[in-house]
Design a protein around this nucleic acid. Structure first.
Lengths: 339, 339
DNA sequence: CTGTTAGCGCTTTCAG
DNA sequence: CTGAAAGCGCTAACAG
């Protein structure tokens, strides 16, 4: 809005035509030299390369994209930039795509679903060649827009029978149930949960609570940490469970390793022993999970695999290869000291 | 390379011309309705909006950028996507820019400086309206390319007298010295450091070591954690300090809150008390610093302010406002329980 | 192997 | 307030 409609101080931008002039060929030949060097004679190739070096030519990908209808851009919408769970995935994903000549345009959606539609439109205006979305719950409008764009779309971190195009993730309810079974097998008869305000985390929590209560016939109290999981939020939630529910023995299933870490700190500060008094299970298997004391029992998802699959299935679509559209990565409970 | 030169299945993309046809005006009027709605009559504005809704038109920002020479894109090169220190800054930065109609194209440079030049070129090919770089050490080639692009550039996390254009950060050597003085004032006569392989971290470390040794007349052993700071790396480094140097009392200055956290865990696991036996100082004031036990004494930089200033000074340049080119944010030692 | 000819879908003058 | 004309810098056929 504060847009001054300011015109860029026409930097003497070098074009392919300029390079061509210097090398004694037309602009088209320069274009060819760059994209199909084998279709150009060694001699002209050389003089073009010299001309490029001399002029400091940087190709204009904007013009290229307009002409070719391929932007070599992949849009990625993730809930949070500061959550390592998402960014570590993105690092793998981006790297894989970059190696194939694509750049990733990433935006944070936050945890407000309303935000997503607007962001999708903004991203589509850049004419990305493909798009990555987090989760499988998207508005009808979003689905329609994406279908209209006619580009490959991958939805990650969750699975569904009816993906927009491709999905790669795992079943969150199944994960919640598996943890309930694990803790029951360990002989726990009381359990609580610490959950962030995230749709998938809530699904794990409710599946956990439902299953666990079939074993213990007690209800499973939950402490919600709000939007973002953190060590601080985990401490607070644990404090709440202790103060409000007198929770001093049993097991706690946290929606994130971070809040689990916080819960452990709070328990120890109060003189409670982990896992003897309270067992703690995290989620995500972040890098620190094995390094804290006690080492954290948690649910692991192969994020590397996730990043690779998301990228390679898009790449397959982009190159016309056949691809599976539903990838269930599963998960694994890693037993460590905390539970 | 594996590029099949695959052509996009010509989705019947709606253009401004299509919208115009439906609304009974020319393409130009549609363009105006979108960018200068006040220059179009209420009536045509309405019929255009209806036509847009009916067709599901999404403007083509690629064509727009080519014609206007403004991409509304800002490139950002950061060392690591998984380091909260950088991403929390980016969240602020991106948000501020988005509110002004810009999108941020972010890439990870890693800690290998050689990578940067290639990435800068790739980014410049998208014709961003501005660029953000991390640190103030850049190759001559990079500087030249950036100057040739003629766009505003902001360098963050460090300061220099000769920024490419704008820099906003603080003096890392001064921070290192300040911590040395702080620990000396607390009466410590032995100190060690735990440092990641990061140019700025190394500068803090060497300034710290130099200053501290003028007080204590002992050398300051350093344990290098390699590329990325983490809790695990901090534990290992602390173990190394204890095992190799018999370091069981004194103070440790860590280049990151993460490694400091790891150091504390290692110390406690070995039965050493923090801060009674060993005092620990971190760097960065990450969100968890106040939440761990003992709460972490650390060096804080106002990341929010950093994000805002980086964005607003670019925006100032973009709108032709005068702007300071060197912003020294300073830093602050936050005294908590660990040192 | 190289050049010619047409656009890609917009924004920007300049007229009316 | 609206339209006509001219490109932005490149890629994609098609000739030669």
């Amino acid at each position: 809005m504060a847009d001054k409609n300011f015109k860029k101080p026409d930097t003497n931008r070098v074009t392919m035509a300029d390079v061509g002039r210097l090398a004694g060929v037309t602009q088209v030949t320069v274009s060819r030299a760059l994209s199909h060097p084998d279709k150009v004679s060694k001699k002209t190739l050389h003089s073009i390369q010299d001309a490029i070096a001399a002029t400091g030519f940087v190709p204009n990908a904007v013009a290229g994209a307009l002409a070719s209808k391929r932007s070599k851009l992949v849009s990625a919408l993730i809930p949070s930039l500061t959550n390592v769970v998402y960014t570590s995935f993105m690092a793998t994903f981006s790297e894989h795509l970059r190696q194939n000549g694509y750049q990733v345009l990433m935006s944070e959606t936050g945890f407000d679903p309303a935000n997503e539609d607007a962001l999708i439109a903004t991203h589509l205006s850049r004419r990305p060649d493909a798009m990555l979305l987090t989760g499988v719950r998207h508005s009808d409008k979003a689905r329609k827009q994406l279908q209209g764009a006619g580009i490959p779309v991958v939805e990650i971190w969750d699975i569904t029978d009816i993906p927009i195009d491709i999905c790669v993730g795992f079943n969150h309810s199944a994960a919640g149930r598996a943890v309930a079974e694990y803790l029951n097998a360990k002989g726990h008869s009381f359990a609580a949960t610490i959950t962030a305000d995230d749709e998938r985390a809530l699904r794990r929590q409710s599946a956990f609570a439902e299953r666990f209560s079939t074993f213990s016939r007690t209800t499973v109290p939950d402490a919600n940490t709000g939007g973002i999981a953190s060590i601080g939020a985990g401490r607070e939630a644990m404090a709440h469970l202790i103060d409000q529910y007198g929770f001093q023995s049993g097991a706690v299933f946290c929606s994130s390793d971070l809040s689990a870490h916080g819960a452990i700190i709070e328990l120890r500060t109060r003189g409670l022993k982990v896992p003897q008094d309270v067992a703690v299970v995290g989620f995500g298997d972040q890098d620190f999970a094995r390094d804290i004391d006690p080492a954290l029992t948690t649910v692991a998802v192969d994020r590397l695999q996730l990043g690779h699959l998301a990228a390679s299935s898009l790449l397959d679509r982009l190159t016309g290869q056949p691809t599976k559209s539903i990838h269930d990565l599963g998960f694994e409970i890693l037993t460590r000291a905390s539970a």
